[in-house]
């Protein structure tokens, strides 16, 4: 079927009063266009859609024979079920709330995820890779999406399988019915660590923390600017700054989770108004 000669376009020549016309069998609504490898929507596409719909219905009806929609006991403000697990698609959010204050994990971060997803087409200047699956032609874009996606799914897996009573960390082999003793180490803000390690005053330590926090963003902003000039030039300043704010925030979320899990750091920056 796929014949190169058939797909050739016959350009109109202004010097000639005639054009090449071919008589074809069939009634085609596509006039004044090159011959295409098209088929009628009815029945070809409609039948695929119908089969899809039927398969989904069948799968769902089959599923509900074995699994039923859960219904817990009547709402009771005085008792929270232990542990209180959100539906799977919000477990990532529930898990993130353990690591950050609610104004960030519950409001700003979801907002940034939504806005970050929305602006992606506007900061991705790579014209390649439209209309087919490819990794090699757009490695960085795929990496970004996969990183966010992985972060989301890892937190879902943690929330589903590694959290137990009192939202404590339970390994798959630990006793899920026994309340764990809260960790003996208490969570501390990063500047307290500096106070203990370096014997400096609290204000100096807080200054360190602010420098580390701002330095992370500053260095992150500058490294591609100096060492990956091609990347910067392809985006332009506006796109670059927008993209890097979201990119560094996403990486920062991963870093903070690691800091919390391994070193029990509660906050990195402490101010009278907001703590991160």
């Amino acid at each position: 079927m796929e014949n190169k000669a058939v797909r050739e376009i016959f350009p109109r020549d202004a010097k000639k009063s005639y054009g090449l016309v071919e008589l074809m069998k069939g009634a085609s609504p596509i006039v004044r266009k090159e011959p295409e490898d098209t088929v009628y929507t009815w029945p070809n596409l409609i039948m695929i859609e119908l089969i899809c719909a039927l398969l989904v219905t069948a799968a769902l009806i089959l599923l509900v024979q074995f699994e039923h929609a859960p219904l817990r006991s009547l709402a009771d403000p005085s008792t929270t079920p232990n542990p209180m697990r959100a539906p799977w698609y919000f477990l990532g959010l529930q898990e993130i709330l353990v690591y950050f204050d609610p104004w960030y994990a519950g409001v700003v971060l979801p907002g940034m995820i939504i806005v970050g997803l929305m602006i992606f087409p506007y900061v991705d200047t790579n014209p390649k890779g439209v209309g087919y699956y490819t990794y090699s032609e757009r490695k960085f874009a795929v990496f970004n999406y996969s990183f966010g996606f992985a972060l989301w799914w890892i937190t879902i897996v943690i929330g589903t399988y590694l959290r137990g009573l009192d939202w404590q960390w339970y390994w798959p082999w630990s006793d899920k019915l026994a309340h764990m003793n809260p960790a003996l180490v208490t969570l501390v803000p990063l500047h307290i660590v500096f106070v203990n390690l370096l014997h400096v005053s609290k204000d100096v330590a807080k200054g360190f923390c602010d420098i580390i926090f701002l330095g992370y963003f500053a260095v992150g902003m500058l490294i591609p600017y100096f060492f990956m000039r091609k990347f910067y030039d392809s985006m332009g300043a506006g796109r670059y700054i927008t993209f890097m704010i979201f990119f560094l925030s996403m990486m920062g979320v991963g870093l903070k989770i690691i800091l919390r899990l391994l070193f029990n750091i509660k906050y990195i920056v402490v101010t009278p108004w907001i703590n991160v």
Partner: peptide
């Protein structure tokens, strides 16, 4: 049910942490 009550309690409490327009927010 219990899932309903607590999911919405937690979710709306999160809204109360919105900066500037939430009672608990910065």
């Amino acid at each position: 049910d219990q899932l309903a009550y607590w999911a919405v309690t937690v979710g709306t409490k999160m809204a109360s942490y919105t900066p500037f327009i939430g009672q608990n927010g910065p």
